[in-house]
């Protein structure tokens, strides 16, 4: 799809959501409404709608790069995989605890990135886990969920 047309489509969706939400803002009886809560968002949404129009108009006059999203692209697969692993780590962190979760997270990523030295994988994962444990949890008292330490 044409890059600018895709952007225009996104902008139209964003401004539609904005207009829809601002319409739901309650009317307040107090005096704080000289310029109400919806004023600035509506102004911005209007601007985005106009910009989308300009982008679409321009896309027919000047040719812009096309964007191709294909599942065969190994880069896209790698990105998706990393994002999923990050999300899983965040999701399971409270369940399996910081220590094991972190070591597995780092280990799996290093394996995906083709680090072939298992000694390094385990060593670095555990060392990094301990380093962050001391900085964040021990010194700065960040309450990451612990199961063992």
């Amino acid at each position: 799809m044409n890059k600018d047309r895709l952007l225009a489509l996104i902008l139209l969706i964003v401004s539609a959501v904005t207009f829809y939400e601002t319409a739901k803002f309650p009317e307040l009886s107090n005096d704080l409404q000289v310029v109400d809560a919806g004023f600035v968002p509506k102004l911005l949404a209007l601007f985005l709608t106009i910009s989308a129009g300009i982008l679409i108009y321009r896309s027919y006059r000047i040719s812009t790069e096309k964007i191709v999203i294909s599942l065969k692209d190994s880069g896209i697969i790698r990105i998706g995989l990393v994002l999923i692993i990050m999300a899983l780590y965040g999701y399971f962190l409270p369940l399996i605890g910081y220590e094991l979760g972190t070591v597995i997270f780092l280990g799996v990523l290093m394996i995906i990135f083709r680090l072939n030295n298992w000694f390094k994988i385990v060593g670095i994962s555990v060392a990094a886990m301990l380093a962050i444990y001391y900085i964040f949890i021990v010194s700065l008292k960040v309450p990451l969920p612990l199961k063992f330490l």
């Binding site: 094991l100 070591v103 597995i104 298992w118 385990v122």
Partner: peptide, 13 residues
């Protein structure tokens, strides 16, 4: 490597 990694993790835990 997986086998080694997992067994190492198990031992550690």
């Amino acid at each position: 490597m997986w086998v080694v990694l997992i067994s190492a993790l198990l031992m550690l835990s």
